[in-house]
Design a protein around this nucleic acid. Structure first.
Lengths: 152, 152, 152, 152
DNA sequence: TTTT
DNA sequence: TTTT
């Protein structure tokens, strides 16, 4: 049936990306992303609440993340929610929710190496599946094309 | 810091909403929402993968859900991701991820009672915080105004 | 620079799609899409305001639109805003704003031929660039891959 | 009927905001916002295409824009599309498309005065209608609450 | 020009 | 008219 599962996040990386290169050369990157919301509590005191999101990127996006994304930087992420089931060591059913990115844009932010945006934009013709190039010859890579045989 | 946490879903209710009315008259509704994605496996066979989302609605949206939403129906949900920590009975840290809705639009779909859209639209001036009414006198209810003292 | 241009619409077709098949076999479909917002005016009277959007679809999405979309039906559209300049007959600069779709999901709605959703879902493995198939062999079509030499 | 009209933009201000303060103290701010997309042309040359959006903000958001937003800065805008009709001087029907913001987040970017983000975040408890405060006492301002009697 |  |  008609179905949409879309997430849009702007936040900061809690750690450098962890990248694995799978058999076949496929890259997967993961990092925690913080979004924060401020509000006033019942005493009128300003409070901040931080939400942590587990971001997963595949292939080209993972490679961009590996090269250019660092802890503290700000990114725009577009993707979808995916909850995986797994058994913990006691054999109980557990759930883990991740955001599988299909688009990413660096927004700069706190960085050790100047403006992270530029390098990324230079080196990657298109990490944006949806908006990519309307030139005749261009190829758009589906960023969440995951092989079926991955160890999830 | 600059932060955005936004989710957009279109899917079907897996169950009727469960609604609690808290002290103070605040209503909270919850239901599982399915989004489905179809893809071809390595043998070219069409497969479908269903994602289940835990939807939470507050106040006016919860009341609309209680009155008009039923298992099987299709809804558009706009909201944000929130992951809560809790201790399980063995004292382990667990995480539960929910979508806190701040906007909802009924799309009809399989229903026991005709087109669910109409009733809802008639009875609710505005469940859409963001888009609500630009008349001078209208009031917009912040849908995710949660009391601080809720039992989470 | 960091840039995002994203539109999400749910609305009804004001007309059947107009489809052109260009040299090279590329299809382009266009239709007006209505979104409506209700609000109360200063006298407390309920009013409705309709917004009309010019939707443009390319290639695979255009072909799906041609086959399955009809006046009155409800669709979810994800895309981007594009404003074109042109000269009117008096030689004045004019602007025309369109939504170039890169994703489309039929939601049914009033239709002459039953539930429009099903046929579309059956016949199209993936019109959803962003969410498409994570099987190894699947191909994702970039929906807004426009040839450069189109007569705009 | 079920309807959604949502726009998400990240881009740069082409000019400082123009702000009007209407009778009754209501503020309206306008500015052009650029989003850019790069693609390769048929010769493999990298090209950039810039889209200009007419942003309109009301009340609290307009006041934040007036105080903190300047030409060149980067902002996240969430809002809706609105096309207005008007007569040009020759009496022809013309259309003008704007994005009416209901949420805005400053992302910094090129600025004459350091990081624009901070000041804004300090001084404005909540310009984010949708996500605002779940404290008991907080008030959420409907950002697109337009008086009916405005001179459009 | 849609839908409710 | 922005930004890279």
């Amino acid at each position: 049936m008609a179905s949409v599962n879309k997430v849009i996040l702007i936040g900061n990386l809690g750690k450098d990306p962890e990248v694995r290169h799978l058999e076949g050369g496929v890259a997967v990157a993961r990092f925690p992303l913080a979004t924060s919301e401020s509000y006033k509590d019942k005493n009128g005191q300003k409070q901040e609440k931080t939400e942590w999101h587990n971001i997963v990127l595949w292939r080209g996006l993972a490679e961009v993340a590996e090269k250019y994304l660092r802890k503290g930087q700000s990114v725009f992420i577009e993707g979808k929610i995916r909850t995986s089931q797994y058994q913990d060591k006691e054999g109980n059913q557990r759930y883990s929710t991740e955001i599988v990115a299909d688009n990413m844009t660096m927004l700069g932010g706190r960085s050790d190496s100047g403006n992270g945006s530029s390098g990324y934009q230079e080196s990657s013709a298109s990490t944006n599946t949806g908006e990519s190039s309307y030139s005749g010859g261009s190829k758009s890579v589906a960023q969440n094309d995951e092989p079926d045989d991955l160890p999830f």
